[in-house]
């Protein structure tokens, strides 16, 4: 066990160091792509808390991403609120929205929940266009990109990257702590056996809707960050494909795994680009093939496969004997 832990810790430190060095070694455009990876990772972590740890399937997290993005965009556009303030507000708005959506979701399981959230994802662009006065209709809202604060010699791209990285690290530590403790055990227990959890005194209804809220809040923060980074929001960017992409991210990255969110984010950011390089004509066909092959070869996602490798390494090097 200790062997595997040590390997894990070393990897986390190395990844953080790499993440800090990255924007200085890359062009502005590449740095922006990695900002996008960070944003996706936050959204995926949110979805993973709900789907991976709590077992509630959501095909509609794009909706919360959209709510977060629009909350920020409207606050910036209408009231000139500083962008740093809008992000926690977007998280709070999504926390409430997710909690409220989580209440009817209590009655739904598995497939039915997937369907209800899928319908939510489909309806979002239409609803956004309908409230034209606030959302700017199908034209969307154009924002201005923030500059790095005075005193820091960073380009706007680098500044956005580090801001995202900061939010990401904070949210990852928070979720790791949340999931490791009493609350996390309750959340997982509900996934594994709701009736037994209830018998042990877990308030399933409260925990499930709260998990929905927290998950939506994470995704909303990601949406808010994306509004700031892209400096533009429009209803059709929050279509059903966004929700599907998020689900693809957590399954490819690894369900019920915190590091899985990062792998999944890298996958959904870069694999479509590779697919485009391979075939200009039908990039999504290539993407679909990637997806299916991935599921055949790594049914537990990248994090799941990596964990196997780590355990083997630990056993081979220390002989301490990791869990089989």
């Amino acid at each position: 066990m200790t062997g595997a832990r040590a390997w894990e810790r070393a990897l986390v430190v190395a990844a953080l160091a790499l993440a800090c060095a990255l924007p200085f070694a890359l062009s502005g455009f590449r740095a922006f792509q990695f900002t996008q990876v960070g944003i996706y990772a936050i959204a995926l972590l949110g979805l993973n808390i709900l789907t991976g740890y709590n077992g509630q399937i959501s095909l509609g997290h794009g909706a919360f991403y959209a709510i977060g993005a629009y909350t920020t965009a409207i606050m910036l556009d209408k009231w000139n609120v500083p962008y740093g303030l809008t992000i926690p507000v977007a998280g709070l708005v999504c926390l409430v929205a997710g909690f409220l959506f989580g209440i009817p979701a209590l009655r739904l399981e598995g497939l039915y929940l997937a369907l209800a959230t899928f319908a939510l994802a489909l309806a979002v662009p239409q609803i956004l266009k309908y409230f034209e006065h606030w959302t700017g209709g199908s034209q969307g809202i154009v924002l201005s990109r923030p500059e790095a604060p005075a005193g820091l010699t960073l380009t706007p791209d680098q500044w956005l990257y580090f801001m995202t990285l900061g939010v990401l690290v904070v949210l990852f530590v928070l979720s790791a702590n949340l999931l490791r403790g009493r609350t996390g055990r309750a959340i997982v227990a509900i996934r594994d056996n709701p009736i037994a959890a209830q018998a042990m005194g877990v308030n399933t209804a409260l925990y499930k809707s709260l998990t929905f809220g927290v998950s939506a809040a994470y995704t909303g923060v990601a949406g808010a960050l994306s509004a700031v980074a892209v400096a533009f929001v429009a209803p059709d960017t929050f279509n059903v494909f966004l929700s599907i992409t998020l689900l693809v991210g957590i399954v490819v990255g690894g369900l019920a795994s915190i590091s899985g969110a990062i792998f999944g984010a890298l996958f959904i950011q870069f694999v479509p680009n590779w697919a485009q390089d391979i075939s200009k004509a039908a990039p999504w066909a290539i993407y679909g093939i990637f997806l299916i092959v991935f599921m055949y070869t790594m049914p537990r996602g990248i994090a799941g496969s990596l964990k196997l490798v780590l355990n083997r390494l630990a056993r081979a090097s220390g002989g301490a004997g990791g869990p089989v």
Binding site: V251, A282, W284, Y287, L291
Partner: peptide, 25 residues
């Protein structure tokens, strides 16, 4: 068939893969 006994979410993702392939083709 290769994912017949895999977790349900894996099958969902395979179906989604099929969806984007057919759409793109």
């Amino acid at each position: 068939r290769p994912v017949e006994n895999a977790p349900i979410l894996t099958i969902v993702i395979v179906c989604i893969g099929l969806l984007v392939i057919l759409n793109s083709l």
